[in-house]
Design a protein around this nucleic acid. Sequence first.
DNA 1: CACGATACCTGTAAGC
DNA 2: TGCTTACAGGTATCGT
Length: 270
Amino acid sequence: MPELPEVETTVRGLARYLEGERLSRVTVNRPDLRRPFPPGLVQALTGAKVTGLGRRAKYGLVHTDRYTTMVFHLGMSGRWRIEPDAIEKHDHLVLETANGHRLALNDARRFGSVDLVDTRELENWPSFAAMGPEPLGPGLTPAYLHAAFDGRIAPVKQLLLDQRIVAGLGNIYVCEALHRARIAPGKAAGRVSKAALGRLVPAIRAVLDESIAAGGSTIRDYAQPSGELGYFAASWQVYGREGAPCSCGGTVRREVHSGRSTFWCAKCQR
DNA sequence: CACGATACCTGTAAGC
DNA sequence: TGCTTACAGGTATCGT
């Protein structure tokens, strides 16, 4: 579910409940997702005041007044449930605020993660240190991609998914951005023309911006997050549309590489 | 180092 | 209905 727009939507939703609030109770129901929760998680957060929320790539950031930031990743199936009626299976971490709100981090597949990082050293945190620029920030330019792709023979789609090159793109939005830019996903990255890169950068920004504006593809209503498809899913041109007609008159096809599905149109993407 | 494949874990949907 | 198989939005790691 969660790529960058979903994490951004999640963080904005969490901010409404957490920003400026004190955490009165922190409950761990199962202490291991991809990795074990950090020791002392409950102690570090209980009684802390949330000073702000943020996002880096697909990681959500919960800053506290103790110079400690809780960094969470939603993996494949993670989501925050807002004001759940009852605690359910896979609600691994539950936060309660002094003013009576309750939030549960639910992750069935447990590919997500929760870490505690010194707020002042966030950029040096190992998972962040080698990361590329934010796709919606000033660092992503055609010139940057041209340099990053130089000499690379791996498929352009694969490199766009590499968080060291661009931080925050996932399978859905890479497929959609490549389609908008009319670039074949299997094309060697180093052979993508400057003109095509000039189309790709605005295409990436557009699909992400539009999805955030629609509340993400997989999170519809933040007050009652349920995991249903969000509005942007209706805007997918290729993802999940194998066999459907492309707007150019071609047919959307699906291929699997390294266990990941790629959706694209061989007629208009070259 | 670059590249491709695989493992991690659980739920859901489709096929028989 | 029940069983089996394929597939799912990400990332780390292992061979080659």
